[in-house]
Nucleic acid binder design. Structure first.
Lengths: 178, 178
DNA sequence: CTGCCATTAGACCATATGGTCTAGACCAAA
DNA sequence: TTTGGTCTAGACCATATGGTCTAATGGCAG
């Protein structure tokens, strides 16, 4: 007891986020989402009248918010920007090790295929902006450039880690920025 | 007259490479490939008995070979490694501008979704190795590290460029390595 | 209790998709 | 010319998929 299950809408969104992250937009069927949540079709089309695309939007938003939380959690306790970046990379490396769907950046598949490629840019930019804010707070002289460098390198390392099925490139990432 | 169309097998492979690069494995149907080549189904399943997966393998190999050619063409005439890297980034930026399917790294979608994720790692590694060879030839002190850094940063910049629909991050990429 | 509304439930449908199969065209060797 | 193999052609099939529709269900305001 005390299950306190999240709302139906949130359950669908979370399952969808996980599946899209892992298998991409076209690789995930609405039946997959339904199976993972044990919910009937009616619920899905009630909460997301536009169906799969609608669900993908919500999932991307959710995933992006999680990313923002991770950025904050990484940099907030850090003493300087470099240390925060190292904490960030370590967090992603841990997630990579523990959960199959974290083997790829949450939004990468949705960015590459599927009907909402265009909507992904602001999300990615949001992560960069949040990182730049932290860089400013930590006294970095060029916050925007630094934040962009972090994310560009992070995404590249993530891709390499995915290919190698090994989080090592993620952990090596802060070293590449020096 | 002097059309000299490539073989049926090659036509299929090229079309598949382009479509997979653009829309991913699940986002591309065999009907799409057939439509692009104006070939009947029988030809496809004659040359690729295992169907779509078989075709994807050939397409990935072809795309990878093209990448290796581009690496060679970029570094061969260069005077030093940095100059070669700049030439490489510029080549991809040009392709990005001219062809829709070059908006993403050829192998990225196949790496993230589809049945042959595992087979992508050696291809990516091949590009890194080829780059390392060039780095050695050009007298770089740490060829392996340098080559890895180039590709990690390149892929990250490519992703950002895709999101922003602007090749600027690709052109800015060599500057990030200094 | 009653009526209303949001939600759940899942049968049902049209289409898209990957794949098979048989018939025939083409071509080179005998 | 015949024969045998390769390749083209596309009709055909089973299944998967996204989406619709109507019928319950449950809680809550009156």
């Amino acid at each position: 007891m005390a299950d306190a299950q999240p709302s139906t809408r949130l359950r669908l969104t979370m399952a969808a986020a996980q599946l899209f992250q892992e298998k991409g937009y076209h690789g995930t069927s609405v039946a997959d989402v339904l199976a993972m949540t044990s919910l009937p079709k009616g619920s899905l089309y009630h909460h997301f009248p536009d169906g799969k695309a609608d669900l993908a939007r919500a999932a991307a938003k959710l995933a992006s918010d999680v990313m923002l939380d991770i950025v904050t959690a990484a940099y907030e306790p850090a003493e300087d920007f470099t240390q925060g970046t190292t904490r960030l990379a370590e967090k992603f490396a841990r997630l990579f090790e523990r959960h199959a769907h974290w083997r790829a950046c949450p939004v990468q598949t949705l960015l590459l295929e599927g009907p909402m490629e265009a909507e992904m840019a602001p999300l990615l930019q949001g992560w960069i902006d949040a990182t730049a804010t932290q860089a400013t707070r930590l006294g970095h002289p060029e916050p925007d450039t630094a934040a962009t460098r972090v994310w560009v390198t992070l995404i590249g390392c993530w891709t390499l880690a995915d290919a190698q099925k090994d989080p090592a490139p993620l952990r090596a990432m802060p070293g590449l920025l020096l």
